[in-house]
């Protein structure tokens, strides 16, 4: 048993009135003198209340809880809150933890949080209803597939991979309309502009070996909106000195989802990553169990996807940490809406 768990056991016995006067005095003196010990006691107290609410106490402990612990009137309110929380949690449908939601397709992003009560609900349906639902789904997907294929043939727009990320030192400006100044590159621009000069130059990356390909678009011309995911590469850096060199994520009104590629060191052996999206020190969303993947242009990356409506015109920072790796890497960027 660890020192910590010995403390917990002692505190639990204290709260249930199982200690001698001398032991009780020692505990209370520590509670007065040590902040951490008091925090631990609060956690143990909450757990004890939860155990009572969830009927996880033995009969003796339950009796001691009633006789001793609940003698303090303010603990009644804690117990009632614990019971209310239990009622609320039990009334909620089972939810897959969105912290582990991990998008896999760059063209589709699941909205948050990921509610998946569907299959558990379907289990209670009759086989006929299940078959009917399956049939409707198949017909629906076939129709969607035909629409997609016909639209694709008409427009013949290739979907191309984005280009390698320019180094941070090569990209000093945050202005999104100048291609040579961009650290992140928008890839949802109309294809009709590619290769020309003027306005479409913003999508070029002059130093790239594959500059023509690098500036290709992944949406059809005229904003038909078939592909609505914009992919950006966010280099590491928290830009604490200001926004001047912060990468710009430029989002059009047609962009439904944003994919962010976060380069990670090749020698980082982490199997899984945890990422937190923050703005003004407020956590907006957290992803867990993200995995690294190989990008043929950039190398090892972690890909994150999120709905564009989640992003507003402001600066953001993504804090990425490999599981088991204490080092946290920051990726700062700012959002511009077109």
């Amino acid at each position: 048993m660890t020192e910590h768990s010995q403390d917990e056991t002692l505190l639990r016995r204290y709260l249930l009135g199982q200690l001698s006067l001398e032991e009780q005095v020692q505990v209370e003196a520590r509670l007065f003198l040590q902040d951490e010990y008091e925090q631990l006691a609060e956690a143990v107290e909450t757990e004890l209340i939860d155990d009572y609410a969830y009927h996880d106490l033995s009969e003796t402990e339950r009796q001691e809880f009633n006789d001793h612990f609940l003698a303090r009137s303010d603990r009644h309110e804690d117990l009632r809150i614990a019971r209310a929380l239990k009622r609320f949690v039990n009334s909620q449908p089972e939810v897959i933890n969105p912290l582990v939601a991990q998008p896999t397709d760059t063209r589709n992003v699941s909205p948050f949080p990921v509610q998946v009560g569907f299959w558990s609900r379907m289990r209670n349906r009759s086989p006929a209803a299940m078959a009917l639902a399956a049939g409707v789904l198949i017909v629906f997907f076939v129709i969607i597939w035909f629409i997609f294929q016909s639209a694709r043939k008409e427009r013949e727009v290739p979907f191309q991979a984005q280009q390698p990320r320019p180094a941070a030192t090569e990209l000093p400006s945050r202005e999104p309309v100048q291609p040579q100044d961009e650290q992140v590159r928008n890839v949802d621009k109309p294809a009709q502009n590619q290769g020309s000069t003027g306005q479409n130059e913003r999508y070029r990356r002059p130093r790239s070996k594959r500059s023509d390909e690098a500036l290709e678009v992944s949406t059809p011309p005229n904003g038909s909106g078939l592909v609505t995911t914009a992919t950006f590469i966010i280099p590491p850096g928290d830009f604490v000195r200001g926004e001047a060199n912060m990468p710009v994520v430029s989002i059009s009104s047609e962009t439904k989802a944003v994919a962010l590629k976060l380069p990670v060191p090749e020698n980082d052996s982490s199997q899984e990553y945890r990422a937190t999206l923050q703005s003004r020190s407020q956590t907006i969303y957290t992803w867990s169990r993200l995995t690294a993947e190989a990008d043929e242009e950039i190398g090892k990356i972690v890909l994150m996807k999120l709905p564009s409506k989640l992003l507003h015109e402001q600066t953001y920072i993504i804090k990425l940490r490999g599981m088991g790796n204490p080092t946290e890497v920051n990726y700062g960027f700012q959002v511009r809406k077109r």
């Binding site: 996880d56 209310a84 949690v89 969105p98």
Partner: peptide, 27 residues
Amino acid sequence: LDECLKQCLERLSHSNREMILQYYRGE
């Protein structure tokens, strides 16, 4: 109490709300 709890849960950040609901799930 249930009404207030619901209101207060909604005021939590998304990640904290999901965490606390996951934390108290199951017996």
